[in-house]
């Protein structure tokens, strides 16, 4: 089925267009809106977005692949993004990442077979003072250690 914004998001999309003097300027927020609705951004959706904004699908593709937060493939219900940059690394984020890999039996960029979790390492989350940190979907979890992480995993259904 061809991608389509639902009624609510269609309204949001039209509102977005009013923010800019050109259509293409709404590209990033439009892709966000697609991801909010679908969980990821499929090629079909990219073509639809290209059409909506009067740009080539290839342009949309190049933009979507330039950023790390747009998911071109589905991610887990809980997308674990562990910060790996210096301040978090100094506070042990490498161990955390290993812990997740062992516990969930997946590598970075993979999804658990039940689709509950996906794992990736990300760059500095601006949470260095509360390192190590991670994001689960859009929520920050800070001052982590193995016990805390296990607790978090347990609570995530």
């Amino acid at each position: 089925m061809l991608f389509q914004f639902n009624a609510q998001n269609q309204k949001k999309f039209e509102e977005l267009l009013s923010h800019y003097p050109t259509k293409v300027a709404a590209l990033l927020p439009t892709l966000w809106l697609v991801q909010e609705q679908e969980g990821n951004i499929s090629f079909e959706a990219m073509e639809v977005v290209a059409n909506l904004l009067d740009v080539s699908p290839a342009h949309v593709y190049s933009v979507a692949t330039f950023y790390t937060m747009y998911h071109l493939k589905p991610v887990g219900k809980h997308h674990l993004q562990v910060c790996r940059t210096l301040s978090c690394a100094l506070m042990g984020s490498e161990n955390l990442l290993e812990h997740f890999k062992n516990k969930l039996k997946i590598n970075e960029g993979e999804v658990t077979p039940d689709g509950r979790f996906s794992l990736c390492a990300v760059e500095c989350l601006a949470s260095c003072g509360t390192a190590p940190a991670m994001m689960v979907n859009e929520t920050y979890h800070e001052n982590l250690n193995v016990q805390k992480v296990d607790q978090i995993l347990k609570e995530l259904k």
């Binding site: 090629f43 080539s56 290839a58 190049s62």
Partner: peptide
């Protein structure tokens, strides 16, 4: 506008839209 450079850093790649 068929050709673009996708990705970034030393992974930048010339490509068309997938399937096109």
């Amino acid at each position: 506008g068929e050709l673009v450079l996708a990705n970034r850093g030393d992974h930048v790649t010339i490509t068309t839209f997938p399937g096109k």
